Amino acid sequence: MTLLAPEQDDVKAGSLHTKRLPGWAAVATAVAALALSAALVLGTGIGNWVLVIVLGAVFYLIGFFIAANAVEGVRSARNRTWSALIHAACVLAILPLASVVWTLISNGVNRLDADFFLTSMNNIGARDPNGGAYHAIVGTLEQVGIAALLTIPLGVLGAIYLVEYGRGRLALAIRFFVDVMTGIPSIVAGLFVLAFWVLIVTPIFNDGRPGYSGFAAALALSVLMLPTIVRSTEEMLRLVPAPLREGAYALGVPKWKTILRIVIPTALPGIITGIMLAIARAAGETAPVLLVAGGTAAINFNPFENNQSSLALFVFSQATESTRFSPDRAWTAALTLVALVLILTIGAKLLARRNRLTR
């Protein structure tokens, strides 16, 4: 064994430490990049602040790569550049969502009052500033609620069959048709229910007259929700580790009880996420409700008789009217619809989390 001289020992110890950019380097580079971009864009008049931000981001990436390469080396510079690109992509993905939320809140607060939530549009004229979406809120809750009651059990059971029992051509055919249904336009679902339920089935029990109703709208929404629930639930069930199933089988637990007590609870958070995505899509559909429920300005608590409105249809009708009070109603109804879906999603997530913690 050879002993190093003190000078050589210091060199070896110093080689373990690499130079690092100071914490303020990123901020300084960003400020310089924005200043250069603003001087170039605004000084020449070739664009506005949007181009300033885009060009500033490009200058920032170039400048930060040069600075990191000079201090830390090319490997660290590449790592920092790709990290900055990933963060920029995240910001770009969040910006449209933040813009939508801000637009909804800033425009929707104008009619956030008791009159909007406790009255309908019945007997409201073009010059009347009052009127609300109570009838539309009732219609949305009933239609989406009925659609969820019809679709969630079918979708979850269908996914369980495909993952746990389905083999051969039948399972392949079911997956194929589920994939096809996933991409169908909403108006096709409305036309199907209109042609089958409204024009063929309901006249038998309605003295030959077509039966437009909220239940018909719920059937159309069920057609749209079913493939989303089946596919999302199927993927979540496939993510459950196989050793969990094998351990239950080794203990003599029947397959149906293994699915009920182990597989589904493990995949429950993901299943609920898929269900809420399907509910959110159904709550925002306009064409099926317009075709088979017709819409109305009055309150209708009975989803099985007469026309019924929804929040999405209310937004569409108010946005297409030419009165000066309609835009405020449309924006507030849109904000109410988003808030309603958000509340349902948070409630479902909290319920799933509570059930998971109490097991």
Results as ranks from 00 to 15, higher is better:
residue 298 A to R: 12
residue 311 L to H: 04
residue 259 I to Q: 06
residue 186 S to M: 05
residue 131 G to F: 00
residue 42 L to N: 05
residue 257 K to N: 05
residue 202 T to N: 04
residue 191 L to N: 07
residue 56 G to L: 01
residue 110 N to Q: 13
residue 243 P to G: 05
residue 251 L to Y: 06
residue 330 A to P: 02
residue 173 A to H: 00
residue 324 R to D: 15
residue 154 L to H: 02
residue 172 L to K: 12
residue 255 K to Y: 11
residue 212 Y to R: 10
residue 88 A to K: 02
residue 280 A to R: 01
residue 132 G to A: 08
residue 219 L to P: 01
residue 151 T to E: 10
residue 81 T to G: 02
residue 59 F to Q: 05
residue 51 L to N: 08
residue 71 V to L: 10
residue 358 T to K: 14
residue 197 W to L: 07
residue 48 N to T: 13
residue 132 G to D: 06
residue 222 S to T: 11
residue 49 W to L: 13
residue 94 I to Q: 10
residue 350 L to F: 09
residue 321 E to K: 15
residue 343 I to Y: 11
residue 246 E to N: 03
residue 108 G to H: 01
residue 215 F to E: 08
residue 309 S to R: 00
residue 221 L to E: 10
residue 283 A to M: 15
residue 291 L to F: 03
residue 265 P to V: 07
residue 334 A to D: 03
residue 260 L to A: 12
residue 225 M to A: 09
residue 318 Q to S: 13
residue 240 V to W: 04
residue 196 F to I: 13
residue 110 N to C: 00
residue 205 F to C: 02
residue 201 V to L: 11
residue 310 S to D: 07
residue 76 S to N: 13
residue 123 N to H: 09
residue 307 N to S: 12
residue 233 T to M: 00
residue 234 E to I: 04
residue 309 S to D: 12
residue 267 A to I: 02
residue 35 A to Q: 13
residue 69 N to G: 13
residue 201 V to A: 09
residue 210 P to D: 10
residue 133 A to W: 00
residue 150 L to Q: 04
residue 251 L to P: 06
residue 49 W to F: 13
residue 277 L to D: 07
residue 86 I to K: 13
residue 5 A to F: 12
residue 67 A to M: 10
residue 282 A to I: 05
residue 142 E to Q: 15
residue 255 K to I: 02
residue 115 D to G: 10
residue 217 A to W: 01
residue 76 S to R: 14
residue 190 G to A: 05
residue 51 L to T: 12
residue 35 A to H: 10
residue 170 L to A: 10
residue 286 T to K: 04
residue 275 I to S: 05
residue 122 N to I: 00
residue 144 V to N: 00
residue 244 L to G: 00
residue 104 L to V: 07
residue 165 Y to P: 09
residue 256 W to C: 01
residue 298 A to K: 08
residue 237 L to D: 00
residue 73 G to S: 00
residue 132 G to T: 08
residue 206 N to F: 09
residue 260 L to N: 06
residue 280 A to E: 04
